[in-house]
Design a protein around this nucleic acid. Structure first.
Lengths: 199, 199, 199, 199
DNA sequence: CATGAATGAGCATTCATTCAT
DNA sequence: AATGAATGAATGCTCATTCAT
C-alpha cells in the first residue's frame, strides 16, 4: 500500500563504494562479504539482495569503476585538439588519475588476477584494452597523416603507451615515492613523444 | 644404518618447478598445497618439510624465478656494448622471455597481488624495481654523457621503459594475439628510442 | 473511510492452495515462503499476516487437506450399506483419490517426515490414524457380527487395510506406472477381502 | 615410509552408524554434518574425507542399510520351503525387523522424501521396490501353480503385501503402541493369507 | 625422512522472519 | 491491511597445517 521506495541504483552505488574500499585494502580473496556489508553499514544479507554473489559484486565493481574511469579519461579529448594535444591530455589525465586513487592500482591487479577463473560473468579485458588501443592508435594514425608523428606502427605504439601507463601505475603501487623522486608527469610524456635518442 | 642423504636444494628445486606450473595455471588462491605435492610426486607433508607454509613456498618461488630471470636478462650486457646496444639487448631479451613463458605473466600478477598481505616473508618488490631501475637508468645516464641519448630524466625514463615492458606483458596476457597483430619486438624498441614525434 | 473488509478465511484458503501446490512440488524444506507468496500473488509479509510461521502454514495445510480428504472419503458410507459394501467403497474411493492427485503422496510424505520436529503445532498423526482405524475396525466388527467377515482381530485388520492403502500410494509415488501394469483397483480389494489362500 | 594403515571401509561403516543414528533422530535437513562428526568422534573434515557431501553420505547410508536389510530378510528363504512358508517367513521377519529398529521407519521416510531432489546420486527407489515385488510375486506365482494360492494377480498382490508392510511400519512410527494393542505379527499374516471374507 | 589421515577455523550463501511505511 | 527491504543466524564445505607412524 505504501511500499518502501528504495533507489536500487543508489544502493548499489553505496555497496560499490564500500566494496571498492575493502577490496582495494584486502584484495579479492582476503575480503569477506561481511567486511563489505559492515563498511556499507548494512547486513550481509542486504548485499546479496543487490548482488548475486561475491564474484558478481567484484566484476560488477570493475565495470562500474572502468566506466567512471573511461568517462573521466576521454572527457579530455575535444575535436579541436591536434592529435598531439589529445594524446598528451590522455596521458596526463591518466597519470593524474592514478595519483588521485592509489588504491585503484591494487584493485586493478585483482581484476587482472581473478579475471581468469572462467564463468561468463567476467569482463572481457581484452575488449577493454582493444577499445583503448583503438582510440589511441586512431589518434596516432591521424598524427602520422598530418605529419605530426613519425611513421610508427600505430597499434604497436598504442600498446606501448598503454603499457607505459599501466606499468608506471604498477611501479607506483610498489614504490609510492616514485612521483616524489622524479617528475613523472613531465618526463613520461617526454619519453613517449621524443624517445630516448638524441636528435 | 647409513643415513639417507637427501639433496635438500635439489628437492626444493623440484618443488619450485611443480609449484611454478600449478600456481601459473590456477593462481595462488586457486592452488591447493596438495596440487603442488601431486605435481611434484610427493606427499603433502613432504612439501612442508621444505617450506614452512604456502606463503613461504610462493614467495620463495618468486625469489627463485626472479633470480633466474634476472640472470638471463642481464647476461646479455657486456662492457663493450654502447649504452644503446645494452639497452636494446635488455628490451629485446625481455620481450622474448615473456614470449617464451606466457604463464610467467600470470605468476607475476599473482606475486603483485599477494605481495601486500602482511608478514615479513614477502619480497620487497620495490627493491626489485629499484634494482632494475638502477641498472637501466645508469645505462641511460651513460648514454646521455656520451651524447647518445637526449637529456631526459634518467630515472623517469627507466620507469617508463620498465613500465612499457611490464605493461606489454600484461596486454599480451589478455590478448595473446598482440604479437601476431604487429611486430612488437621491432616497434616497441623503436618507440622507446625514437619517440612518437617526427624529427 | 470505510474499512476494507477482507474475508480472512477466503484468503487463508487462497494461501493453502498455493502452498499445497508449491510444497507438493518442492517439498517442505525445498520451499521458500517467497515461493508460496508468489504463487498466491501476494507479498511475503502478507502470508505472515495469516500464518505465524512456515510450520504453522505447513501443518495448517495438513489439517485443511486431511479434512477435505476425509470428507470426500467418508461421504461414500451410507447407513444402508452392508459392512462389506461400505469397506469396499472406502477402499475404492481412496485408491481413486490417490490416482487423482498424485502429488498428494509427496505432500503426505513430507507431513510424515516433518511431523516429529518438536513444538506443539503439529497434528497428532496418531490420532488421525486412530480415527481411520476406528471407523474401519467398527465396520469390520459389524461385519464379523453379521457373519460377513471372518473372526479376525478387527484393529489389526484395520491397520493392515490402512497399511495397504498408504503403502500402495507410496509405491505408486515411486513407480507411477504401477496402475498401468495391473488393475490395482480390482485386485487390491480382492486381496483384502479374499486373501491369498485358495478356498 | 611407515604410512598409517587405515581401514577405509571400517571407517566408512563407523560413519554410517553415527549417521544412521543422527539422521534417524533429527531427520535429513535437521542434521548438521557436525552432528554426525561428533557422534562418530571425529572432526567435520574427516567425514568429508570419506563422503563427498551430505547427500553422498545420506544416500550411501541408504544403500548400506538397504543391503543389510535385504540380506537379513531374504536369508530366511530356503529352497525347501513351500511358497506359503517362504512368504510367511518374509512377512514375519520384516515385521520383526521394524520392531527391532524403530528408527528405521524415520530414516526410510527421509529417504522417500529426499529421494526426489534430482541429481544422479540417488538410489532408484522404483528399482528397489521392483526387486522386492519380483521376489514376492514369483513366490505367489509359484503358489498359484502349486494350487496353494488363489488365482490373484501376482503383481498386484505383491504390491499389496509390500504396501501392508510399509504401511504397518508407518503406522507404528506414529503409534508405537500398535503392537501392544494387538498381535500384529499374527493377525497381519492372517489377513494377507485369508482375507477378510468368511469362508 | 616421508607420508597422508585427521582436523577445525573460516567463509559464501540461504532464507525465515521482522517491521517501517 | 499489505508489502518487500533488511537482517543475521545457521550450515555445508574447503583446505592449510599438524603429527603419529
Amino acid at each position: 500500500m505504501a511500499p518502501i521506495i528504495v533507489d536500487k541504483e543508489a544502493k548499489k552505488e553505496e555497496i560499490f563504494l564500500a566494496a571498492a574500499s575493502v577490496f582495494a585494502e584486502k584484495g579479492f580473496s582476503g575480503t569477506r562479504m561481511e567486511d563489505v556489508a559492515v563498511k556499507a553499514n548494512m547486513g550481509k544479507g542486504t548485499v546479496y539482495e543487490y548482488f548475486k554473489s561475491k564474484d558478481a559484486l567484484f566484476f560488477g565493481l570493475y565495470d562500474y569503476l572502468l566506466n567512471e574511469f573511461h568517462t573521466k579519461i576521454y572527457a579530455v579529448i575535444t575535436p579541436e585538439q591536434t592529435p598531439f594535444e589529445a594524446l598528451s591530455a590522455i596521458v596526463s589525465v591518466t597519470l593524474r588519475a592514478f595519483d588521485e586513487w592509489h588504491d585503484y592500482g591494487f584493485l586493478l591487479m585483482d581484476f587482472w588476477k581473478e579475471h581468469r577463473r572462467g564463468g561468463g560473468l567476467q569482463i572481457e579485458f581484452s575488449a577493454v584494452y582493444d577499445k583503448s588501443r583503438d582510440i589511441i592508435s586512431r589518434l596516432i594514425d591521424e598524427g602520422i597523416e598530418k605529419g605530426e608523428f613519425a611513421h610508427v606502427d600505430s597499434r604497436a605504439a598504442a600498446s606501448a603507451i598503454i603499457g607505459i601507463l599501466d606499468g608506471v601505475m604498477l611501479q607506483r603501487v610498489f614504490d609510492p615515492d616514485l612521483y616524489g623522486k622524479c617528475d613523472v608527469e613531465t618526463h613520461i610524456p617526454a619519453l613517449i613523444f621524443m624517445g630516448l635518442k638524441k636528435r
